[in-house]
Amino acid sequence: MAELEQSEAKVEAQKALLSSAQVDLGETNVVAPFSGKVSANDLAVGTFVTAGTTVLATISNSDPVRVKFSLAEAEYLKLVATKAADGTAPLENLTIVLADGSTYPLKGKLTQVDRSISEGTGTLTLKAEFDNPDKLLLPGMFAHLQANVGTKKDALLVPQRAVTEIMYKTFVYVVNSENKVEMKEVKLGARVGRLWVVESGLDGTENIIVEGTQKVKKGSVVKAEAMTEQDLDTSTTK
Protein backbone atom coordinates (compact mmCIF):
# COMPACT_ATOMS: atom_id res chain seq x y z
CA MET A 1 0.00 0.00 0.00
CA ALA A 2 2.81 2.38 0.90
CA GLU A 3 4.56 1.65 -2.41
CA LEU A 4 1.35 2.44 -4.32
CA GLU A 5 0.99 5.79 -2.60
CA GLN A 6 4.62 6.64 -3.33
CA SER A 7 4.15 5.74 -6.99
CA GLU A 8 1.01 7.86 -7.24
CA ALA A 9 2.85 10.77 -5.63
CA LYS A 10 5.64 10.44 -8.20
CA VAL A 11 3.08 10.42 -11.00
CA GLU A 12 1.47 13.61 -9.68
CA ALA A 13 4.88 15.24 -9.37
CA GLN A 14 5.70 14.38 -12.98
CA LYS A 15 2.32 15.73 -14.09
CA ALA A 16 3.13 19.00 -12.33
CA LEU A 17 6.50 19.16 -14.09
CA LEU A 18 4.81 18.44 -17.43
CA SER A 19 2.24 21.17 -16.83
CA SER A 20 5.00 23.65 -15.97
CA ALA A 21 6.95 22.69 -19.09
CA GLN A 22 3.84 23.13 -21.24
CA VAL A 23 3.35 26.64 -19.81
CA ASP A 24 7.00 27.50 -20.56
CA LEU A 25 6.61 26.14 -24.09
CA GLY A 26 3.48 28.21 -24.64
CA GLU A 27 5.32 31.36 -23.61
CA THR A 28 7.86 30.82 -26.39
CA ASN A 29 5.10 31.43 -28.93
CA VAL A 30 5.03 35.23 -29.33
CA VAL A 31 1.81 36.57 -30.84
CA ALA A 32 1.52 40.16 -32.12
CA PRO A 33 -1.36 42.20 -30.68
CA PHE A 34 -2.41 43.30 -34.18
CA SER A 35 -1.74 42.60 -37.85
CA GLY A 36 0.95 44.63 -39.58
CA LYS A 37 4.43 44.70 -41.09
CA VAL A 38 7.43 43.40 -39.11
CA SER A 39 10.81 45.13 -39.13
CA ALA A 40 13.65 43.56 -41.11
CA ASN A 41 16.20 43.44 -38.25
CA ASP A 42 15.01 40.15 -36.72
CA LEU A 43 17.16 38.39 -34.12
CA ALA A 44 19.35 35.56 -35.37
CA VAL A 45 18.65 31.98 -34.32
CA GLY A 46 20.51 31.17 -31.12
CA THR A 47 20.57 34.73 -29.79
CA PHE A 48 20.04 34.92 -26.04
CA VAL A 49 17.04 37.04 -25.10
CA THR A 50 15.73 38.42 -21.82
CA ALA A 51 12.03 38.65 -21.14
CA GLY A 52 10.87 42.26 -20.89
CA THR A 53 14.20 43.62 -22.18
CA THR A 54 15.09 42.18 -25.58
CA VAL A 55 13.09 43.53 -28.52
CA LEU A 56 12.31 40.56 -30.75
CA ALA A 57 10.78 42.61 -33.56
CA THR A 58 8.97 45.86 -34.22
CA ILE A 59 5.58 45.65 -35.89
CA SER A 60 3.58 48.54 -37.30
CA ASN A 61 0.09 48.88 -38.68
CA SER A 62 0.30 51.20 -41.69
CA ASP A 63 -3.37 51.35 -42.61
CA PRO A 64 -4.36 53.93 -41.70
CA VAL A 65 -1.24 56.04 -41.17
CA ARG A 66 -1.02 59.06 -38.90
CA VAL A 67 0.82 62.20 -39.90
CA LYS A 68 2.23 64.34 -37.10
CA PHE A 69 2.64 68.06 -37.75
CA SER A 70 2.80 71.41 -35.95
CA LEU A 71 1.03 74.72 -36.41
CA ALA A 72 1.62 78.15 -34.96
CA GLU A 73 -1.15 79.30 -32.65
CA ALA A 74 -2.44 81.91 -35.10
CA GLU A 75 -2.43 79.39 -37.97
CA TYR A 76 -4.40 76.88 -35.95
CA LEU A 77 -7.03 79.42 -34.92
CA LYS A 78 -7.38 80.62 -38.50
CA LEU A 79 -7.80 77.10 -39.88
CA VAL A 80 -10.38 76.20 -37.25
CA ALA A 81 -12.41 79.30 -38.08
CA THR A 82 -12.13 78.95 -41.87
CA LYS A 83 -14.50 77.16 -44.22
CA ALA A 84 -13.51 76.25 -47.77
CA ALA A 85 -15.65 77.21 -50.76
CA ASP A 86 -17.45 73.84 -50.63
CA GLY A 87 -18.28 74.34 -46.95
CA THR A 88 -15.79 71.80 -45.60
CA ALA A 89 -13.40 72.55 -42.77
CA PRO A 90 -9.74 72.71 -43.94
CA LEU A 91 -8.56 70.35 -41.21
CA GLU A 92 -11.11 67.75 -42.33
CA ASN A 93 -9.87 67.74 -45.93
CA LEU A 94 -6.07 67.48 -45.82
CA THR A 95 -3.62 66.66 -48.60
CA ILE A 96 -0.03 65.45 -48.40
CA VAL A 97 2.70 65.93 -50.98
CA LEU A 98 5.35 63.20 -50.88
CA ALA A 99 9.13 63.54 -51.11
CA ASP A 100 9.14 62.98 -54.88
CA GLY A 101 6.69 65.86 -55.40
CA SER A 102 3.69 63.63 -56.09
CA THR A 103 0.37 64.24 -54.34
CA TYR A 104 -1.05 61.35 -52.34
CA PRO A 105 -4.46 60.56 -53.91
CA LEU A 106 -6.43 60.04 -50.69
CA LYS A 107 -7.53 62.85 -48.40
CA GLY A 108 -6.94 62.87 -44.66
CA LYS A 109 -8.54 64.46 -41.64
CA LEU A 110 -7.49 65.78 -38.25
CA THR A 111 -7.79 63.18 -35.50
CA GLN A 112 -5.87 64.58 -32.53
CA VAL A 113 -4.88 67.96 -31.11
CA ASP A 114 -2.34 68.27 -28.31
CA ARG A 115 -3.67 69.59 -25.03
CA SER A 116 -1.48 72.71 -25.00
CA ILE A 117 0.87 74.98 -26.94
CA SER A 118 4.56 74.08 -26.63
CA GLU A 119 6.34 76.67 -24.48
CA GLY A 120 9.60 76.01 -26.30
CA THR A 121 8.39 76.43 -29.89
CA GLY A 122 5.08 78.25 -29.52
CA THR A 123 3.44 75.67 -31.76
CA LEU A 124 0.64 73.16 -31.38
CA THR A 125 1.18 69.49 -32.27
CA LEU A 126 -1.57 67.77 -34.24
CA LYS A 127 -2.12 64.39 -35.89
CA ALA A 128 -4.00 63.62 -39.08
CA GLU A 129 -5.11 60.23 -40.37
CA PHE A 130 -4.89 58.96 -43.95
CA ASP A 131 -6.17 55.65 -45.32
CA ASN A 132 -3.32 53.61 -46.80
CA PRO A 133 -4.86 50.54 -48.49
CA ASP A 134 -1.97 50.09 -50.96
CA LYS A 135 0.66 50.44 -48.20
CA LEU A 136 2.37 53.23 -50.16
CA LEU A 137 2.96 55.30 -47.03
CA LEU A 138 5.54 53.94 -44.60
CA PRO A 139 6.42 54.88 -41.01
CA GLY A 140 9.18 57.48 -40.87
CA MET A 141 8.36 59.11 -44.21
CA PHE A 142 8.32 62.90 -44.56
CA ALA A 143 5.60 64.78 -46.40
CA HIS A 144 4.30 68.30 -46.85
CA LEU A 145 0.78 68.68 -45.52
CA GLN A 146 -1.65 71.08 -47.18
CA ALA A 147 -5.01 72.40 -46.03
CA ASN A 148 -7.49 73.92 -48.48
CA VAL A 149 -8.65 77.26 -47.12
CA GLY A 150 -10.31 78.33 -50.36
CA THR A 151 -9.18 80.46 -53.29
CA LYS A 152 -8.17 84.09 -52.89
CA LYS A 153 -8.36 85.95 -56.18
CA ASP A 154 -5.40 88.20 -57.08
CA ALA A 155 -3.66 87.36 -53.80
CA LEU A 156 -0.44 89.19 -53.02
CA LEU A 157 2.33 86.83 -51.86
CA VAL A 158 5.75 87.48 -50.37
CA PRO A 159 8.53 85.02 -49.51
CA GLN A 160 8.62 84.08 -45.84
CA ARG A 161 12.27 85.06 -45.51
CA ALA A 162 11.44 88.61 -46.64
CA VAL A 163 9.27 89.16 -43.57
CA THR A 164 10.71 90.57 -40.34
CA GLU A 165 8.90 90.42 -37.01
CA ILE A 166 9.47 93.21 -34.49
CA MET A 167 7.50 93.50 -31.25
CA TYR A 168 4.72 91.22 -32.49
CA LYS A 169 4.38 93.22 -35.72
CA THR A 170 5.46 92.10 -39.18
CA PHE A 171 7.37 94.22 -41.69
CA VAL A 172 9.03 93.98 -45.08
CA TYR A 173 11.86 96.11 -46.42
CA VAL A 174 11.19 97.77 -49.78
CA VAL A 175 13.36 99.82 -52.13
CA ASN A 176 11.77 103.08 -53.26
CA SER A 177 12.34 105.04 -56.49
CA GLU A 178 15.42 106.71 -54.96
CA ASN A 179 16.97 103.32 -54.12
CA LYS A 180 16.43 103.99 -50.43
CA VAL A 181 15.23 101.35 -48.00
CA GLU A 182 11.83 101.74 -46.38
CA MET A 183 10.02 99.56 -43.87
CA LYS A 184 6.38 98.75 -44.40
CA GLU A 185 4.18 97.08 -41.84
CA VAL A 186 2.13 94.25 -43.33
CA LYS A 187 -0.74 92.14 -42.14
CA LEU A 188 -0.18 88.52 -43.06
CA GLY A 189 -2.78 85.95 -43.96
CA ALA A 190 -2.37 82.25 -44.67
CA ARG A 191 0.97 80.59 -45.32
CA VAL A 192 1.28 78.92 -48.72
CA GLY A 193 4.39 76.78 -48.92
CA ARG A 194 7.28 79.21 -48.43
CA LEU A 195 5.10 82.25 -49.05
CA TRP A 196 2.86 84.47 -46.95
CA VAL A 197 -0.40 85.93 -48.20
CA VAL A 198 -0.35 89.69 -47.55
CA GLU A 199 -3.74 90.96 -46.42
CA SER A 200 -2.76 94.63 -46.21
CA GLY A 201 0.24 96.96 -46.23
CA LEU A 202 1.38 96.47 -49.84
CA ASP A 203 -0.19 97.28 -53.19
CA GLY A 204 1.91 94.95 -55.35
CA THR A 205 4.09 97.61 -56.98
CA GLU A 206 6.85 97.58 -54.36
CA ASN A 207 10.34 96.18 -54.82
CA ILE A 208 10.75 93.92 -51.79
CA ILE A 209 14.11 93.00 -50.31
CA VAL A 210 14.33 89.22 -49.93
CA GLU A 211 18.03 88.56 -49.33
CA GLY A 212 20.16 90.49 -46.86
CA THR A 213 17.34 91.82 -44.70
CA GLN A 214 19.62 91.59 -41.64
CA LYS A 215 22.14 93.96 -43.23
CA VAL A 216 19.92 96.80 -44.44
CA LYS A 217 18.59 99.73 -42.44
CA LYS A 218 15.75 102.13 -43.01
CA GLY A 219 16.94 105.08 -45.11
CA SER A 220 20.10 103.42 -46.42
CA VAL A 221 20.85 103.52 -50.14
CA VAL A 222 21.16 100.14 -51.85
CA LYS A 223 21.74 98.71 -55.29
CA ALA A 224 18.94 96.23 -55.81
CA GLU A 225 19.19 93.24 -58.12
CA ALA A 226 16.18 91.41 -59.49
CA MET A 227 15.64 87.78 -58.52
CA THR A 228 14.12 85.06 -60.65
CA GLU A 229 11.41 82.72 -59.44
CA GLN A 230 14.04 79.98 -59.32
CA ASP A 231 16.23 82.17 -57.10
CA LEU A 232 13.31 82.77 -54.76
CA ASP A 233 12.63 79.02 -54.44
CA THR A 234 9.06 79.63 -53.31
CA SER A 235 7.56 76.25 -54.16
CA THR A 236 4.13 75.93 -52.55
CA THR A 237 4.84 72.29 -51.67
CA LYS A 238 7.53 73.16 -49.13
Rank of each mutant, 00 (worst) to 15 (best):
S70M: 12
F171I: 04
L77Q: 12
K127R: 13
K218N: 15
S177A: 15
G26N: 11
A44H: 06
L110R: 04
A44F: 07
L137Y: 08
E75L: 02
D63V: 02
G36N: 11
V158G: 03
E5G: 03
T228D: 04
P33H: 01
A85R: 06
I59N: 00
K238G: 02
K223N: 15
G212N: 12
Y173F: 15
K37Q: 14
L4T: 04
A57P: 05
K169C: 03
F34T: 05
A40I: 11
P139W: 08
S20L: 13
S35Y: 12
D231L: 05
A162D: 11
Y104E: 08
D231K: 01
A81W: 00
R194V: 02
T234S: 14
L77D: 09
V97Y: 05
V11F: 09
T47A: 14
V49C: 05
I209Q: 10
G140K: 07
Q14K: 13
N176I: 04
Y104N: 08
N176K: 12
S177V: 12
E178V: 08
K169T: 06
G189Y: 00
V163N: 08
Y76F: 15
M227E: 03
A2E: 12
K83T: 11
T88L: 09
L232M: 13
D100I: 06
G87M: 07
D233C: 02
Q112V: 01
V210N: 10
L137R: 02
V221K: 15
D86S: 09
E182D: 15
L110K: 05
M183S: 15
M167W: 05
A143M: 06
E3G: 01
K15G: 00
T47N: 07
T151F: 11
L136W: 06
A32T: 11
E5M: 03
L126P: 00
K78L: 11
E92T: 11
L25V: 09
T123I: 01
V113L: 03
I166W: 04
A155R: 10
A190I: 10
N61A: 14
T58E: 14
V172G: 10
L106F: 07
S60N: 09
N207Q: 14
I117H: 10
K78C: 00
